[in-house]
Structure formats: C-alpha cells, structure tokens
Design a protein around this nucleic acid. Sequence first.
RNA 1: GGGCGCGUGGCCUAGCUUGGAUGGGGCGCUGGCCUUCUAAGCCAGCAGUCGCGGGUUCGAAUCCCGCCGCGUCCGCCA
Length: 580
Amino acid sequence: MVAAFMQYPFDLFRKEIIESLRPILDSLGYMDEIRLETPPSPEMGDLSFACFPLSKIVKKPPSDVAKDIANKVSPKEWIDHTDASGGYVNFFINVERLVSHTIDVILMQDKTYGSLEKKQKKVIVEHTSANPNGPLHVGRARNPILGDTLVRIYRYTGYDVESQFYVDDLGKQVAILAWGVKNIKPETLPKTDRDKPDHLLVRFYQQAYKLMSENKEVAKEINEIVKLCERGDEETIRMVRDAFEPALQGIKQSLAELDIHFDRFVPESQFVKDKSVDEVVEALKKTEYTGKEDGAWYIDLKPFGVSGRNTKFFFTRSDGTTLYATRDVAYHLWKAKHADILINVLGEDHKLEAKQVEIALKLIGAKTIPKAVFYSFVTLPGGKMSTRRGRVVYLDDLIDEAVARAFEEVKKRRGNELTEEKIKHIAKLVGLGSIRYNILKIQPEKDIVFKWEDALNFEGYSAPFIQYAHARASSILRKMPSPGKVDVKPLTHQQEIALVKLLARFPDVIKEACGNNRPNLIANYLYDLAAQFNQFYRDCPVIKAENKKLRDARLALVQATSITLRNGLYLLGISAPEEM
RNA sequence: GGGCGCGUGGCCUAGCUUGGAUGGGGCGCUGGCCUUCUAAGCCAGCAGUCGCGGGUUCGAAUCCCGCCGCGUCCGCCA
C-alpha cells in the first residue's frame, strides 16, 4: 500500500522557485503574489518570472532586473540553473531529478496518477435531465458527455460526487406523451427501424403533439393532465410515469453505451408531494421584491440586473399552482442539504431560468448556490434540431454510424490478422471514444454545427489518435514488460526529456480542468502527450535500444506514458485499447 | 428593443478568467517517410488584417467603449 501521497514534481519545483524568489523580491519592494508562467518553448526554460511590473518599482529596465535576479538565485534541489532573457527570469528544472521522480511517481501511483488528495466535500453534478419523451438527439448529447466527464474529473480531484438526473415528470412534454400512449392506436403510427422503447414512444409524442395543435379538445385534455400532476394527483402522476418510464429506460440504455450512468434519478413531483415547493412559495411571497398580478405571484428581477421585455419571474400561476422554476428552487434547496458544491450542466436556453433560480435561492437564504456549466447548441447545417418535426440525428444513430465506420477502419488495417470478434470490440471502443472526444475537445460555449465528417473524425485531433498512441505503448510492453523500478539516468534524449516533462504536467492539467469546469483542457493535453509519444516512438527504439540499461529505462518511460494516457482517457470516459 | 454567449488561414479549433518573449493544433491541399517496437503515425511546404473602429498600457487575440455578424433567452411553458 502506498502510504503517503507523493508530491508531484512540478509542485516541488514551483515551491522551490517561490521560496528562492520571495526574499529577493521582498528586498526589492515587490510584495505581490509571485506568479510563474510557462515559457513559449522548452529551450527557454521550464518556468519563468516576468520582471516588467518589478522594473517599474526599481526603475531599471526589465532585462537588467531579470539579470540581477537570475544571478541571485542559486541552484538547489530542483532548480538546475537560471537564465535571464527578454525581461524574464527563466528557471530550468533539474532534469535528472525530474525524470526519476516523475517516473517513480507514475509507476507507483499507477491508476491514481494525477488524482489529488481527498477533499472531504460532497459534490452533486446534475446533468442531462432531458424530457423523457423520446430518444436523445445529438443536439442534446453535449450535456451527458460534459456532465459525466465533470463527474469523473471531480472524483479524481478528490471530491465525493453524486450524479443526478432530474426527471421532469410534471411537464407538458410527458403529459403529451402520456395522452398519446393512452389515446393513439399503435398500428396507426409509422413503423420504426429501431426496436427500442424511446424510439417506439417518440411516435406517440409526435402524433399527439400534432393532434394537440389541430384539436382544442385534445389540448384541453392534455392541459388537464398537466394540472392534475402539478396538484400532486397520485394516480395521474403514476399514469404519466408509466407512459414515459420506457422512454427513460431507452435513454439510459443509450447513455450506458457511452459509459454514462447516474447515481440518482430525482423526479420533479417529489417536491410537490413533500410540500417543499409550497414552503418555497411562502418564503418567496415575503421578499421585498415580490409582487402579485391577477392572483399570480412574481419577483421583479430588474433590481438584480435582469433586463428585457419582461423581468418578472412568476413563481405561481393565478390558480396558485407552481411553475417549473419554482419546483427547481425546491430541488436545489434539497440538493444543498446533501452537498457542499452543486454543479449543473445546462443548455444555453436555460440561462435565464438558472438566473431566476439563483436569485430566488439567495432571497430565501440558501447557503449553497449552484454553479452552472452552460453549453451552446449542436445544430444541423440547416438549423436547429427538432424532435417534433423529426428533424434530428439521434444519438443512437450517431453511435451506430461511429461504430460501423470504426469497424471499416479497423478491418482495412488489421482485417487479415485479427478475428472478426476482436475487430468488433476495437471498433466499439474507437467509435464511442470518438463521439465523446469530438464533443469534449471543444469549449462548451462554442456552437457546434453537426457534420458527420467532424463527428466521425478518426485522425489528427481525435480520440483514435490518442488511443493509437496507447496501443503502440501497449504493444511494446506486451512484447517486453517494463522491469518496474529501474535506473532512469540513461534517459537523456531530447524526445525522452520532452515526454517526461509533459507527463509531469498531468496533475496540473487536472487541477485546472476541475477548477474551471473545463474538460477540454484534458482533451488538449492528451493530444499533446500522444503527439509527443509518437515522436519519441519514431526517434527512440525501445526493444532494440543500444543496451539493456537504456532499454529498461525506456520501457519504464513507455509504461509511465501508457499509464498517463490511460488515466487521462478514463477521465474523458474513453477507453484505452491495448490493441487497434 | 434589452440581456447573455460566440466571431482566430478554405473549413474546424487552442490561447482570452490571471495582458507579456516567434498566435499553437487539426482537417483539406502539395511533396517526402513503411526490410526496424502497429503509417489511425512521422517530416517538410502552402495558408493568418486574431470580425471592424477607437481607447487603456512600456506591451492587447487577451482589458475597456462603440459598431457589425451569428446563436440564445426575454411565456401565469418546460
């Protein structure tokens, strides 16, 4: 058992620099926090300190200040030497120490390399929360992929995490579906090519929606269902739930394909049944921003910086029933009781609603305010996706297509050496990995126009590129296992050093990705790491290294790389094939 | 009309929170590398007014103001 949590090399290096710099800077009258940056290229150093602000204080040119400081810093355990250029003090790490320490840590921690110490804090990540009225389409697929990745990242960073899917069982969408299931004869509906409950059910929804728009009677009946649900009528809620439950199962199935699972499904009706939403209403009625219009209660959001045509946030209807956002407030109060940090993954269309909930929570004195991660829509080249109009690409179709495409690719390359079964297995890992990666590599706030060629990208900046690097490493280790703890002094080739330096950065990347809710940083990093490994692979023969010492050292490095790639891919929910 | 987000080579994208040292990648295109650990790879080349205009600064893709374009929201819907 690994007793103590080993400290990561770059943390130690950074710490040493700051300790050396502090007294020097103090004596020059610079009291600010010391911020270190990474030079643009490794030849210039491993970390640097900019002297521009300091040059003002001491009234000397930055280059002179940098030179003075560089001369005063002496080599230590981690600082090998310093250098001044262009107004920067550049610090070079002790490479020999870095190499041995980094490889030691990685081989020792193995599956936990990059993870951080336990935080003793609970996080609830709410994501997906899609209306269970049909299959997930790719327009919404960003949500579960981002959400699940955040769950993984928070766990790895040391938090206790629970993932939640908020089931909107009181909404109009599910009421329409329930009406359809009850009133529409299945044989009148078009056939589906997919025998999966969500695909079968969405036809009822689409048809019921159509009838509702054409026929006032139908609309009335559907509204009646909604009303009964909102009042907490057990029988109606059960009827609706029975209607949508299979669709939810279908959604779960699709997500399971992508290795996405939830710890808890929370039905919206829970907060009507336990009356907690009524408590929210009572509390909101008492604020100084509260008003009433035709019997409906609202909060004026204008003083909170919300603007637009209408700034009133209605939290009851004139008949006293609550609205979606009101119940969402109750849900968040409940979550706050069970966690220290709340993360919500939401589409950009929910920005105002999230703001309403946040303001309401503050007004009634909630101590934990959720942090939202918004993502922009995935659209089709012709515009938005729409389940109603059938203008959609379903996630299931994307999955099938990705796996099929991957199958062709594997077959093309390895068809004559691998069994059909093995090809299928690899194709699945590659196809599914590509879907996740192609979403995760892009910042959430950027719009994505769905194009098959991008979604199924298998080369360059893609999952298979990284998986391939891992497979290459595995292939070497399969032929000749790493001897474990060895003397890594022979690792002096520039590709080896560059590779180790990247490996050592992994924990920083995770910390950064978690702190800012930005999984794309990990996606980026893994690409860089894989690319660097490919260069090492080209220049440094491992099995046929000149001598046994070098070979063993390189094997350890390959092992360390394979561990880091695998851990990183795991965080993104992508599998690391040993062969492809 | 107002709020929020986005705008980087033909296409996609990193960097923007915390301003600094030559703006990184990928796709596509052109040319080269498989008798050596899997070529889903590697190397070289072509390709950029960082939407436009102003400002702050020793220094702006990054901060501030204005404008333009795209997305999204402004329901007693969810």
